[in-house]
Structure formats: structure tokens, C-alpha cells
């Protein structure tokens, strides 16, 4: 590709507005809100910024916008069913999208029975990775607490309506996940670097020990690469490049791995502090592990990347 690997000025401006909003409103309390305390005002604020409607067809939001926003949301550790919202906004019939885009109804998106956000959701979207349906619960939701402190639950679903645009929606969902994971990974790595720079043991700052410094550097390399891949994928999708979907899958996998590595290294650098619930990284690392999990309906993600190489059509 001969174009620069960067977001457009408009995308950067959008990211800037999300960054400022999160700096002001994504407080510790909002970040750490768990089951039973969903931060509605924060979520509606995201809707007002247009974040929840980015993927609605015709709203002008493409993969670049989704990715640029996602990176900020991950860095701010913003809560909420962000990926499901992106997928639903793209696929739901026009009559169903306004309450979702306005932040009034939450989306549960996944493959039943274990459905993310189902205890709080009013809109259910089932997917097997290739197809998707608007669905409704066929019984009560049994809540499950999760590693990443998100309210999930088990529920049987009844399919109501097949949905179109699954491939485009999946690409955008990949971009949201990839961007968020990159941002969260960057955050825990930055915290570790700061700790290594200031914490003194054995009369030296931790960062002067190569055993501490090198893993931090390696994790940083992974995140750098993932960032570029996210931007390349976003551009490819928005330009209708035939490898857009495969690049989106690659970006997701790359960001997942990079964020996991960053989380692990950050823990090892922080020592016991990382293990404290009130500490700076434990809760972020747990959600990174949660989001980097490839669920059963996304098993094609790796295959898509492989297929891109089988084509031999790289530029």
C-alpha cells in the first residue's frame, strides 16, 4: 500500500472528542462498574457523541472511525457492550436501531447459551459467525459473573428475524475489539513502564534491570505492530479492498496477542500491586483476557487470515 498508515484528520478529530469525553466522564467508578451498576449516563454520553451509531448504515462511520474510537475507549477502559453494539447497529432493521444508537437499550451479541451482557440487554443478536438473527429470550437469563467483570448470562434464544450484512458487521466488530484491546494493552504497558521508571529496588530503578526492561520492550513492539495492522485493516475495509475482512481478522488476533502480552508483562513488573483489586492493572488485565478470547462463533477468524496468504494476493 502506498498510502500512509494513519487515520484521516476527521477520524483523528473524532478520536480526540472521545478522548476528551472519557478523560472527563470515564471515572474510576465508571471504569470499575460491574454487574448491577451499569453507568447509564456515561453510556448515553457516548451515544450523544455518535459512538454508538458509527456502524449504522448511512451514518458515515466506517472501519476507520470505529477503530479510531475503539482505541480511545480501550485506553480509557470504558465499560459497556461496545462490540455487540457495533454489530447490531450494522445489521438491525432500521426500526430497531434508534434505541440502541441512543444508548437506551443494551445489546447482547453472541452464540447462546452463554451470552455477553444478557442480564441487562433488551436487544439480542445471535450469530454463528456466518449468519445472524435478531432473537428474543426463550426463558429467564441466569446471570454469570465473568473474569472481565462484565455481566454475562445463560439464556436460550428464539430466532426472530435473519439479519443482513453479517460480513461487514463482523469486520466492524473485529475493528472495535482490536482497537479496544490495543488501547487497553497500551494502558497496562504504560503503567508498567511508569512503574519500572520510578520504583527503586536494590538501589536502582526497576527499568535498569534488563530482565524487567526487555519484556516491556517486546510487549511494546507487539502493540506497535498491532496498531499499524488495525489502521491498515480499517483503511482496507473503507476502500473496499478485497482483503479487508482478512486484515480485520488479522488485526483482531494481533491486538489480542499484543494486549495479552502487555497484560502479562505489566503484572510481572508490578508484582503484588497488580494482584490488588484496587491496583492500577488487575481489572484491566482481566478484561483483556476476556476480550482476547476467540469465542466459538469467531473460529473463522484465523482461517480468514490464512486464506489471505493462500490467495498470494498481497501487495
Amino acid at each position: 500500500m502506498s498510502e500512509p498508515v494513519a487515520f484521516t484528520p476527521d477520524q483523528e478529530a473524532l478520536a480526540g472528542s472521545v478522548r476528551r469525553y472519557c478523560a472527563a466522564k470515564c471515572t474510576e467508578e465508571v471504569q470499575r462498574s460491574g454487574p448491577g451498576s451499569f453507568p447509564w449516563p456515561f453510556w448515553r454520553g457516548l451515544a450523544e457523541l455518535g459512538v454508538l451509531s458509527l456502524a449504522v448504515p448511512g451514518e458515515g462511520g466506517g472501519a476507520g472511525e470505529v477503530a479510531a474510537v475503539a482505541m480511545e475507549l480501550g485506553r480509557a477502559f470504558a465499560p459497556g457492550p461496545l462490540t455487540g453494539t457495533v454489530f447490531a447497529a450494522r445489521t438491525l432493521p432500521p426500526a430497531c436501531t434508534p434505541p440502541v444508537a441512543a444508548g437506551e437499550r443494551l445489546v447482547s451479541w453472541g452464540c447462546p447459551p452463554l451470552m455477553p451482557w444478557s442480564p441487562l440487554a433488551e436487544v439480542f443478536v445471535e450469530t454463528d459467525g456466518e449468519r445472524a438473527w435478531l432473537a428474543r429470550p426463550a426463558g429467564a437469563v441466569t446471570p454469570e459473573e465473568t473474569l472481565g467483570n462484565e455481566p454475562w448470562g445463560r439464556v436460550a434464544l428464539e430466532r426472530v428475524l435473519p439479519l443482513d450484512g453479517v460480513r461487514e458487521a463482523t469486520d466492524l466488530a473485529h475493528m472495535m475489539l482490536a482497537g479496544y484491546l490495543w488501547g487497553a494493552g497500551r494502558r497496562v504497558l504504560d503503567a508498567a513502564v511508569e512503574h519500572a521508571r520510578t520504583r527503586v529496588q536494590f538501589g536502582r530503578t526497576l527499568g535498569t534491570f534488563q530482565a524487567v526492561a526487555h519484556p516491556l520492550v517486546n510487549a511494546g513492539l507487539g502493540l506497535e505492530a498491532a496498531e499499524k495492522l488495525v489502521k491498515v485493516a480499517a483503511r482496507a475495509i473503507d476502500h473496499g479492498h478485497h482483503q479487508g475482512s482478512a486484515l480485520a481478522s488479522a488485526a483482531r488476533l494481533s491486538a489480542s496477542r499484543a494486549a495479552m502480552d502487555a497484560a502479562f508483562v505489566s503484572h510481572q513488573t508490578h508484582g503484588a500491586m497488580g494482584y490488588s483489586v484496587e491496583g492500577p492493572i488487575g481489572h484491566v488485565a482481566q478484561r483483556i483476557r476476556q476480550l482476547s478470547m476467540v469465542p466459538s462463533h469467531a473460529h473463522h477468524t484465523g482461517e480468514q487470515v490464512l486464506a489471505m496468504y493462500a490467495e498470494g494476493g498481497r501487495e
Binding site: 453472541g110 452463554l114 454469570e144 459473573e145 465473568t146 473474569l147 472481565g148 454475562w152 502479562f264 503484572h267 510481572q268 508484582g271 503484588a272 497488580g274 494482584y275 488485565a285 482481566q286 483476557r289 476476556q290 478470547m293 469465542p295 466459538s296
Partner: peptide, 22 residues
């Protein structure tokens, strides 16, 4: 995804393994 549910072997082992080297 089943490993993410609290108290599952995956969830518990993830927490243990992060502390193992500390």
C-alpha cells in the same frame, strides 16, 4: 468463553498463574 465464567477452572487458573511468578 466458558473459561471466563467466574469459578470455572479457566478463570481460577488464570488468576493463579498470574501470581505464580510473583
Amino acid at each position: 468463553s466458558e473459561a471466563l465464567v467466574e469459578q470455572s477452572p479457566g478463570d481460577a487458573q488464570f488468576r493463579n498463574s498470574l501470581g505464580a511468578g510473583i
